[in-house]
Design a protein around this nucleic acid. Structure first.
Lengths: 337, 337
DNA sequence: CTGAAAGCGCTAACAG
DNA sequence: CTGTTAGCGCTTTCAG
């Protein structure tokens, strides 16, 4: 293995000069800089990650904790992970993958052994058991999603409340008077995942504000249940003309179910969703939607962490990304009664 | 930060004894073992990962390289990643996540800096450009999938050729005489990803052997193209009664398309697939399928690596998991003509 | 069965 | 602008 002293000798300088030439932490003359890099190149030198971490107390690794549980749309998690890795690399960091399953002990382990410098957590719950730990951990973290109290923590997410509102306003603007929200599976609400509840809040508030009548329907992510909710909605709310879907796997089956029940989209029924743009675009009837910008959230989360690691600047505790609605073929004006 | 010398002092032993008590690399009397663990517990000691890696030349981290490209079913990748992480933890290892995008330079980087001890690669192509690198790298690796020549490497995957055969044999056994394979998107074949081609080989060979007439149809993973292939198949092969699908996102839309064209499944048409069991079970008509055992492959891949890291035993270069077909509602005997 | 002590390869004062 | 040197915290000979 070629080490820093080899490079130093080869370039005719001291080891520290090589180190500084690499880190840029002190000025190096152009001439020696060139010689050092030449030597590095010729010898194929790679600094030993462990030695570096030991000497600098920085591993340049971020931990990413991904959820496993039911009711979470896998492609969103994956896209998020990819964007975290890609962005981390831009800042010369790597990403260690942890599963939620490891729990608090897992977080403590990677933090306390200095395996990682900082942590990113997904799928945060309103009263997430990891919150107290994160506050005492000596390493910075960023959470995707908002717990009940985010004091002293850094959180980022789509503004789901505003997203729910935005969908309703879009429908209200088109003249719809009776709307329904088809939401995430019941277990997502039961375990008090913040984002699902916030959509409901926004949806309901905006409906009330606009004088619309509204109902909320948590729903399993199976094709069978799509048919079931569709039937139930038509039966219980015959005047329904606007639906907001916050349940990725159900989007397509639900539209199918409505059409099989004789409702044209958007002729008889307007449908909007909160989901990744790719999903909204890939449905047979492209769906008007508020984008779930997983990639952007991942990028921003890493950037927040890097800034926290930098030390100087302080970062905002809460970052809420404003909803961006794209009108597509699935919504239209309410048909004359 | 509490370090090994603190623990040693607290327990009244030397640092090396603490180290050995932790690693078990030499006999420790029951009494001192107890005292050491007590001290560790009381002080909340965690060995510093970097220091450990430096002193032992082992980081206890595995690299996992995941694909990004089109034509790959995301949930399979995700399930695979989770199973790798879970299994790695069982052997006291962590997992560093890399994207294919980083390319050979990325592999070289994490290997040469000793950030990781070993590598797992997914989405291997027939003539994968990373092969020569892997052979020269001083660290062990395992590939998911088989390149054209796997000499000197360790590969594992579902036996896709046998899987293709198994599907055909199942259909042949039910009396079907004309079968078609609806395959992965064309780009998957173009870039010579091994597994897609092997399915075709097995499918065709088994059809020939059984005297069935067969055709192969690479297919985009969009709902629109499902309809298109379905129509084309019926037009060009009116006698068709058996279909093998090797394209996850297309499975459900394709069955829908057939039924919309007036064919009952399995009454008029038997459908089998090569896909994850969860997918096969979740379709409206549960599909007879050969399982794509991502979790098992992930587990086995890690176990192979751990054995290679252990040094002693040598591991097989090729591990082909035999196909396991589960009969479900989508296949039945050929209707009397 | 246990201790002492020599590094592992790099960074960051400190000194010039 | 550059060199010298003292660790970073742990593992592992070597010695007993």
């Amino acid at each position: 293995m070629v080490k820093i002293t080899d490079v130093a000798r080869h370039a005719g300088v001291s080891p520290s000069t090589v180190s500084y030439a690499l880190s840029g932490k002190r000025p190096i003359s152009e001439e020696t800089r060139r010689r050092v890099h030449e030597a590095i190149h010729e010898l194929g030198y790679r600094p030993h990650a462990g030695a570096r971490a030991l000497a600098s107390s920085r591993s340049n690794v971020l931990a990413l904790v991904i959820p496993l549980r039911a009711g979470i749309h896998i492609p969103v998690v994956m896209q998020f992970a990819v964007s975290v890795v890609t962005t981390a690399r831009r800042y010369d960091h790597d990403v260690l993958l942890l599963t939620q399953e490891e729990g608090e002990e897992g977080l403590r382990r990677v933090a306390d052994t200095a395996l990682v410098d900082a942590l990113i957590l997904m799928d945060v719950q309103l009263h997430d058991p990891r919150l107290p730990l994160l506050r005492t951990l000596e390493r910075p973290s960023v959470m995707i999603g908002f717990p009940a109290s985010s004091e002293g923590l850094t959180c980022i997410d789509l503004d789901f409340k505003a997203a729910g509102e935005r969908c309703v306003e879009h429908l209200a603007g088109l003249g719809h008077r009776v709307v329904a929200l088809v939401g995430s599976p019941p277990e997502v609400y039961v375990r008090q995942t913040a984002f699902a509840q916030r959509v409901v809040q926004g949806f309901t508030a905006a409906a009330d504000r606009n004088g619309l009548s509204s109902t909320v329907h948590p729903c399993e992510a199976t094709p069978g249940s799509a048919r079931a909710v569709a039937e139930r909605l038509l039966r219980e709310q015959p005047a329904l003309t606007g639906v907001v879907v916050h349940n990725e796997p159900l989007l397509e089956p639900l539209i199918d179910a409505f059409e099989q029940l004789g409702l044209r989209v958007p002729g008889d029924l307007s449908v909007t969703a909160i989901c990744p743009d790719e999903l909204a675009e890939s449905v047979r009837v492209p769906v008007t939607s508020v984008a779930l910008p997983s990639a952007e959230i991942g990028t921003r989360a890493v950037e927040l962490l890097i800034r926290k690691l930098g030390g100087g600047s302080t970062v905002p505790e809460k970052t809420l990304l404003p909803p961006r609605l794209t009108a597509r073929a699935s919504t239209g004006p309410r048909a004359a009664p």
